[in-house]
């Protein structure tokens, strides 16, 4: 069974009487453990798709099933709970809270989940270890480099063991070398079984993922799964491939 099932999803905005179809009748399945990229030029509707997939927004039409649960008609409160429990976000601008240290930032989703402080601490440290940031736990975001901040943000996205992680241009604000390290981190995480969706406009970044979904004018124009067609032979990283 697919992790996410979109059937006939449309998102329509009304701007001054004009109807804008940001998403137009989209069907999409994402399976557990997949590493996909959603690619498209700006204004294509890829962000809208991510927002709807990420339960930040509701579609105007159509149905979405996440983990077997219909969420097209969920209330704001239910959506918040789903975001908290089943979805992780990684943003272009990292979006760590500057007043909290790295550990507190990573703990934040668990605060809203209502975990005890002891559990929060243990799981946050585990997540930081996963992204090799456990030695920076007490630093403030401003004291870290962009790559380190993004790692902390990834730790935050993973800390509640979500069903799927959405990364919105995760390398957009990093130099190419650091960007590649981050992409490699995603790759490693996907090898460990995480479901990850990269949203990007850059075909080079999209090349990292086995499956590519191209969006144009609110419609899926290409849906290529390299694994199925046998063309994909794994990503080429300039930095040394990490063991384990």
């Amino acid at each position: 069974m697919a992790l996410i099932e979109l059937r006939g999803v449309s998102k329509i905005y009304h701007l001054g009487g004009e109807e804008i179809r940001a998403l137009d009748n989209v069907d999409l399945d994402i399976n557990p453990g997949e590493f996909i990229s959603i690619i498209g030029p700006s204004g294509s509707g890829k962000s809208t798709l991510m927002h709807i997939l990420g339960c930040l927004d509701s579609p105007s039409k159509g149905s979405i099933k996440l983990d077997g649960m219909e969420i097209g008609s969920a209330s704001a409160r239910e959506l918040a709970r789903i975001r908290n429990q089943k979805i992780g976000f990684v943003f272009q601008f990292f979006n760590l809270l500057p007043k909290l240290n790295v550990l507190q930032n990573v703990e934040l989703p668990m605060v809203y989940a209502g975990c005890s402080s002891r559990e929060r601490r243990e799981r946050a440290m585990d997540a930081l270890r996963l992204v090799e940031m456990d030695n920076r736990a007490k630093h403030r975001p401003m004291q870290l480099s962009g790559g380190q901040q993004q790692r902390a943000a990834i730790a935050r996205a993973l800390v509640n063991s979500p069903k799927i992680v959405f990364a919105d241009e995760p390398t957009g604000n990093l130099d190419s070398h650091t960007g590649e390290t981050i992409l490699k981190l995603f790759h490693d995480l996907s090898l460990k079984g995480s479901t990850i969706a990269l949203v990007t406009h850059d075909p080079e970044i999209a090349a990292v993922t086995p499956r590519k979904i191209e969006i144009r004018d609110g419609k899926i124009s290409k849906n290529v799964d390299a694994k199925l067609s046998g063309q994909h032979d794994g990503p080429k990283f300039a930095v040394g491939s990490q063991q384990n």
Partner: peptide
């Protein structure tokens, strides 16, 4: 916005 994205309710 960040707080809401990671699961804070109204």
């Amino acid at each position: 916005g960040i707080r809401k994205a990671i699961g804070a309710t109204f």
